[in-house]
């Protein structure tokens, strides 16, 4: 039974793998070195650790929704990117159902970074699979 106020089971990445950033750089055709090279991150004044691509952070949330609501598929999302996620970070994607009926579920969604708060937050609407 799905209802408003229900928390969705979290999806955790125990440690952000910099090798995954190489995969994303290739798929996105994005050679920005802040995702690939610690020296470039330092030179840009952005700290010591490589920075995860923003859409990868949203992908963890989409994984959470797919696992939590397997009979539903995402119809829409609306998210704000609030902070960077860095290599070796532990992140947890979470959500809470805000409304539900026979055809649609809406949720608040977020990605929490250990020790630094939310990197991403927004909402999603899912529709029942055919």
């Amino acid at each position: 039974m799905i209802g408003a106020g229900q928390a969705l089971p979290p999806f955790e990445i125990a440690s952000i793998d910099p090798q995954a950033m190489v995969v994303w750089a290739d798929l996105l055709h994005d050679p920005n070195p802040i995702h690939l090279d610690k020296a470039a991150v330092q030179a840009a004044g952005l700290g010591e650790r490589r920075i995860n691509q923003g859409p990868a952070n949203l992908a963890y949330i989409l994984n959470m929704l797919a696992a939590a609501l397997p009979d539903w598929r995402v119809e829409s999302t609306d998210v704000r990117f609030m902070a960077n996620v860095l290599e070796d970070d532990r992140v947890v994607a979470g959500g809470t159902i805000t409304a539900a009926n026979d055809s649609h579920v809406t949720c608040d969604i977020w990605l929490e970074v250990d020790g630094r708060g939310r990197a991403l937050a927004g909402s999603a609407t899912l529709v029942k699979n055919d």
Binding site: V23, W24, L27, A56, L62, N63, A67, R73, V74
Partner: peptide, 19 residues
């Protein structure tokens, strides 16, 4: 490759990851 980089397996029905 994209799915596994986010720690899931790809769907078997030909749908791609929504990201």
């Amino acid at each position: 490759a994209l799915c596994r980089s986010t720690r899931i397996e790809p769907a078997a029905d030909g749908t791609a990851h929504p990201i």
